[in-house]
């Protein structure tokens, strides 16, 4: 929606928020509502297990001023199951997004110098079938966007891009710290609802 009266505040830029958490059902929601409550859009969100079993890592990208990001980070860190929060500008991180492109093999093989295309865009072919081919590339937004533009004329069938993952440049020894932490205090297993599949086998009253 167009809101001409809302101007982009000065000082806003992309920030990468890195959150280390326990693996807990409902935590994604607890973190997400910290943003939605303040009507802040999440540009990108990636959550996956970290290198340490039982500790998860969120990568969240938003466009905001540092003052707002600092307050958000403190609100996130306040959540009981959050271990640690960092926030960094794009200059402070190495970041990548992964993209997959599905194109018809006949057209692409016929009309494109595939080798050059792959080389110029740092892409590789993941699957080559008679009917379609899937390319993959990683990079910044402009780079993955660029390959869309290149492939669009050749009948791009499907495109998908992952959320951003980012490594913090000056994060000395995170891995070591996390490992020590996990050794000192092992995480707990998540208890999921195992009754869902049992249905009528479960007693009812």
């Amino acid at each position: 929606m167009n809101h001409p009266h809302i101007e982009k505040a000065p000082g806003k830029q992309e920030y990468n928020i890195t959150v280390y958490t326990e693996n807990q059902i409902g935590l994604l929601n607890r973190i997400a509502i910290i943003f939605t409550r303040r009507k802040i859009n999440i540009d990108s969100l990636n959550t996956s297990p970290s290198e340490i079993e039982s500790i998860h890592r969120f990568n969240i990208v938003i466009t905001e001023t540092e003052d707002v990001v600092r307050k958000l980070a403190r609100q996130i860190e306040k959540q009981v199951e959050v271990l640690k929060v960092y926030y960094n500008s794009n200059e402070d991180v190495i970041w990548q997004e992964l993209a997959l492109y599905k194109v018809p093999t006949d057209i692409i093989a016929d009309k494109v110098s595939v080798e050059r295309l792959l080389r110029e865009n740092g892409a590789r072919a993941v699957v080559i079938r008679k009917d379609y081919t899937v390319f993959e590339t990683t990079g910044h937004r402009e780079e993955t966007d660029n390959l869309i533009k290149v492939l669009q004329p050749f009948g791009l069938i499907e495109f998908v891009r992952s959320a951003r993952v980012a490594i913090i440049k000056d994060s000395d020894g995170f891995n070591r710290k996390l490992r020590e932490f996990e050794q000192a205090e092992p995480g707990e297993d998540v208890i999921e609802n195992e009754y869902l599949n049992l249905r009528e086998k479960v007693f009812t009253v």
Binding site: Y195, L196, V202
Partner: peptide
């Protein structure tokens, strides 16, 4: 403390 429906009925 809130009661909740049987676990197999959740959702």
């Amino acid at each position: 403390i809130t009661g909740q429906v049987f676990a197999h009925l959740l959702g």
